Simulated scan of single mutants.
Amino acid sequence: MIVHGNRFTIKPGVTPEQLEEALESLRNQGRVIPSVRSFVVGRDFGGEYEWGASFVIDDLDGYWEYLVHPAHRNTDRVGLPLVDRFASFDITDDADPEAGAKIAALHQRRYESDAALTQLVSDLGEYSGSAAPGPHAG
């Protein structure tokens, strides 16, 4: 099992309506992506981020389905332009010592196949975790 999580802060000037659209898109991912077993989207307490989302997925095949699903792509489109700082993480009970590298490879494959997504992520003020391709220096 893999728990994929995101933690993020929003840029100044984002309207409540824009934020709610992005949060609802995250919730929609949990409802409609078949490989998602459970999810939570809400306030992030106990750290430096304002919001967070976690999705429970059975395996790497399900993770790939999650990454490329149209509902996830919609969240990228409506949500990433609102984000200042973003961190993603993965927790797994898979005993495979290569599990982390395999998860990172899925993210890299996704970025390599989607230049628009890579640009959105690279434009973030800060992004760490899960094979982050950016932000660009300078």
Rank of each mutant, 00 (worst) to 15 (best):
E65M: 12
P135T: 14
F45C: 03
T92E: 00
I91Q: 02
H136P: 14
Q119D: 12
D61R: 12
I91W: 08
T75A: 09
E17Q: 13
N74A: 08
Q29S: 09
T15C: 04
V32Q: 10
L106V: 10
V32E: 05
P70W: 13
E126C: 14
E48V: 12
A116S: 05
T75M: 05
E20V: 13
D58N: 05
V41G: 02
L124C: 08
G42F: 07
A115K: 04
P135R: 14
W51C: 02
R109P: 08
I91T: 10
P133C: 13
W51H: 02
V40G: 02
V121D: 00
G129E: 04
F89G: 01
I103M: 07
P12R: 14
L117P: 04
L106S: 02
T118D: 07
D93W: 01
I91A: 10
A22F: 06
P12A: 14
A116G: 01
L80V: 06
A101G: 13
L26D: 10
V83C: 06
G42E: 08
L80E: 01
A53Q: 09
E17H: 04
I91Y: 00
P70F: 13
F45T: 05
F86Y: 08
L82F: 08
A95S: 14
K102H: 08
G47A: 05
R109E: 11
S88E: 00
E20Q: 15
G42P: 01
R77C: 06
G62N: 05
V14N: 06
E17Y: 01
R27T: 00
S35F: 04
A115G: 08
S122E: 15
E65D: 13
V68S: 11
A132H: 03
V83K: 11
T118E: 07
E48H: 13
R73A: 04
S35C: 11
A71T: 08
E126L: 15
F89A: 07
D84A: 14
P81S: 03
R73D: 02
L80Y: 01
T75W: 11
V3C: 03
E48Y: 12
T9N: 10
S130C: 10
V78D: 03
E65F: 11
G134K: 13
D59E: 09
E65Y: 09
T92L: 01
P133F: 11
P12C: 09
V83Q: 01
I57R: 00
I10C: 04
I2G: 08
G30I: 11
R110I: 01
I33S: 00
N28G: 02
Y63T: 03
V83N: 01
G46Q: 06
V56Y: 07
